[in-house]
């Protein structure tokens, strides 16, 4: 079983080698004539106005947080799904209760207007 991970490891190396080779070839074949204007930040042709690394809307952050909660809880559901053949009805009902708690979290977020985009 562990043998399979040899392939995954080698695949990672080979898959990384493909873009590295392609970019190296591109570097070799393409011209290289940098100048100040070409290397400047693109912004409608005008000179760039201030840096781009600015403060941004908290809304994006809230979505990332909600995602984090959901993703962690979903990972806990995978073992239940794999062991499904051995679970009696009682255990399934427990799992459904767990999903209902997840749904309650979604409803809470919804009621708190965290899903609104305005």
């Amino acid at each position: 079983m562990l043998d399979d991970y040899v392939l995954i490891g080698l695949l990672f190396v080979v898959a990384f080698a493909l873009p590295v080779l392609a970019i190296t070839f591109g570097n070799l074949l393409g011209p290289k004539k940098p100048n100040r204007i070409k290397n400047d930040v693109y912004e409608c042709g005008m000179e760039a106005f201030g840096p781009a690394w600015v403060r941004f809307r908290v809304q994006y952050y809230i979505f990332a947080l909600i995602f984090l909660v959901f993703d962690v809880e979903l990972m806990l559901l995978f073992p239940i799904a794999v062991a499904y053949d051995f679970l009696p009805l009682f255990a399934i009902v427990e799992a459904v209760l767990f999903i209902l708690i997840l749904t309650a979290a979604l409803l809470y977020v919804w009621r708190k207007n965290a899903l609104e985009w305005s």
Binding site: A15, G26, G30, K32, K38, N39, D40, Y42
Partner: peptide
């Protein structure tokens, strides 16, 4: 055409992340 284009690296980028990102999207 894509192979023979110049690869421009702008001056003010965050170098490490900038170079890794295209490779990661393929890998």
């Amino acid at each position: 055409k894509l192979l023979t284009k110049e690869i421009i690296t702008p001056d003010h980028v965050d170098k490490v992340m900038y170079h890794i990102a295209p490779m990661m999207s393929v890998v």
